[in-house]
Computed example of a mutant assay.
Amino acid sequence: MKSSKLEIALVQTSLVWENPKENRQIIAEKIKEIKPSTDIIILPEMFTTGFTMSPKKIDFNAALETLKWMKTISKEKNAALVGSIVYKEETKNYNRLYFVEPSGKVSFYNKRHTFTLAGEDKVYTAGKEKLIVEYKGFKICPLICYDLRFPVWSRNTTNYDVLIYVANWPKKRILAWDSLLRARAIENMAYCIGVNRVGIDALAYEYPGHSSAYDSLGTLLSFSDKEEVIYATITKEHINTTRNKLKFLEDKDLFNLL
């Protein structure tokens, strides 16, 4: 069913290192308190483990259990659930984002830009395809963390309405996170929503949150730097009005990724 607006919950949470079961329990308690009017619930990158570079430590069945859990939560809350996890497929590991709908429909996206600075490219296979999800009349493009630094990959060639980034983005580079989220919104004339974690991981990296939502003009709609759930409301009217008045997307350069 199409809608003229979406209510989105950004779950900014700390994560227990490499412990899918405990993270699911903690996050489930937070989700219980989310407004019943919520349409989409967004979790951080690798929300069951933290940003681990040791996928071998994560039991293969953990991903299957998490996907089952996501389906249950989505149905109970009547809201789509979005977040990435460690996923194993035969001999390959992926940083895989799932977009799970209340109907049981599941879409996924494998992180395209693996974070070489942390050696993610050595242990996770990079994805090759972008995902566009059509949900309640909105076209949504979900991406993961390091993808934020590469504007060509997120380029709005399909007239999507919303960009979503899930992340484990550290404090030392948080200025880039803040700046690039706003830039992605402006250049793509789309809502841009970023959900980051908080807390300190097992490798002593600190995460300050800064989960936020921007409209298509780069106006900040929501922001937090503490452990909590925040909300953003997005509307079709804003997208349509802005794009009809400011036809910047029609002037974009035409080229293809090789």
Rank of each mutant, 00 (worst) to 15 (best):
A118R: 12
K77Q: 03
G104N: 11
T66L: 10
M70A: 06
S84I: 03
S84G: 03
Y94W: 04
D121Y: 01
E120H: 01
T116S: 04
T72H: 08
I85W: 11
N110K: 04
K88S: 14
T114F: 05
R112H: 06
E76R: 09
P102G: 01
S54Q: 15
I85R: 00
T114I: 10
N95I: 04
A80W: 07
A80N: 03
L81V: 14
F51K: 15
P102D: 04
P55S: 06
G83N: 04
T72V: 14
S74M: 07
K111L: 07
P102F: 04
Y109V: 02
R112F: 07
D121P: 00
E101T: 08
H113G: 15
P102W: 08
A118G: 01
I73R: 00
R96G: 11
K75H: 15
N61W: 02
T52E: 10
V82S: 07
F60V: 15
N95E: 06
N93I: 04
E120R: 06
E65S: 00
A63Y: 10
T72E: 14
W69C: 11
E89H: 12
G119A: 03
G50W: 01
S103Y: 07
S74G: 12
N93H: 06
Y87G: 00
R112E: 02
I85F: 11
M70F: 00
T114N: 15
T52N: 13
A62T: 04
F99Y: 02
N93L: 09
Y109P: 01
V106L: 03
N95Y: 02
L64D: 01
Y94G: 01
G50T: 04
H113F: 14
K56A: 10
E101F: 08
Y94H: 08
V100W: 11
K75N: 12
L117S: 13
I58D: 00
K111P: 01
L67A: 01
T52Y: 03
K71D: 06
D59P: 12
L97S: 10
M53L: 14
S103E: 00
D59S: 15
R96N: 09
S107F: 05
L97Y: 14
T114E: 15
F60H: 15
K71Y: 03
E76V: 01
H113A: 15
D121N: 13
T72S: 12
V82Y: 00
M53T: 12
K56N: 05
A63V: 11
K77D: 02
D121F: 12
N95H: 03
L117P: 03
H113R: 14
T66N: 11
P102H: 15
T66M: 05
W69T: 05
N93M: 05
F99I: 01
K77N: 03
N93W: 01
P55V: 00
Y109T: 07
K75C: 08
E120M: 03
K105G: 09
G104M: 10
N93F: 14
Y87M: 00
K77E: 07
S103D: 11
F60W: 14
